[in-house]
Amino acid sequence: MLKPSAIITLLVSISLAVGGVWIIYNINLLPEAASSNAPVYDELFRVLFVIGVILFVGMFAAVVYSLIEFRRRPGDQEDGLPVKENLPLEIFWTAVPAIVVLFVGLYSYDIYDRMGGMQPLDHQNHGYSVSSSEEKVWGGIGTSSNNSNMDLQMQSLPVEVTAMQFAFLFRYPKGDFISGELHVPVGQTISMRMESNDVIHAFWVPEFRIKQDVIPGQPTILNFTPTKPGRFPIICAELCGPYHGGMRSTVVVEEPEIYQDWFNKNSNTIVS
């Protein structure tokens, strides 16, 4: 037998949850998704956002309701109820967050795995002429599982990124030339080996949902697969000096033929 107040609580919770989910699927808070990583990331974001909104609105409502409902009325000099603890209730609100957190942890592990984060790095390095066993290369994020089969891995486009105060330089080892803009063909896995000449920088493309620090003396690896043609900003995300805010570049994602033209025009080696 439900009390009316319990029914109201139930209705409020349900409408809250439904409203939360509706908002999340109809308001886009993230920039355009332009890499194979991005839709996976956005899925994680939606789940976290739903859980977060429900928790926040619930706590907010509980505090505001308490302040209004249990405010001291004029003339009332009595104390509240001497309730000191309630074991079942305390077990409940220890267990529920623990389960939620465990779920979020496992789910984000799955997402991380789908982004390729758990793949051993030497499997991602086939695109390199440099042998990764010679030096310690630290992991960024791997390829998406969409492209994780070996054939595509073998075909991944290697790019060597050098960061310095306050610019990124992109060297294409296959063509032996350097570009100030990163040109990549759509749908192709790019395998970047990054190193800094001076201080720590970070390579960030918001539309790709990837970021990796570029560290002096410690090469790092970052793989991604662009899925939409367009020009996207490359932003330095680690404080690197006075012009840190101006340290930006562009990644140009092109159809493979246009990319090939650009590559041939700049290439210093004969393309087979």
Partner: peptide, 30 residues
């Protein structure tokens, strides 16, 4: 570090629920 960090939410959550429970049914001077 993901898992260790996430689990801090549990003891922290307990404190927040306890504070709301402290308010609940009180005679709150606003």
């Amino acid at each position: 570090f993901t898992i260790a960090t996430s689990f801090i939410a549990v003891p922290t959550g307990i404190k927040f629920f306890n504070w709301v429970a402290t308010l609940w049914g009180g005679k709150i001077s606003l």
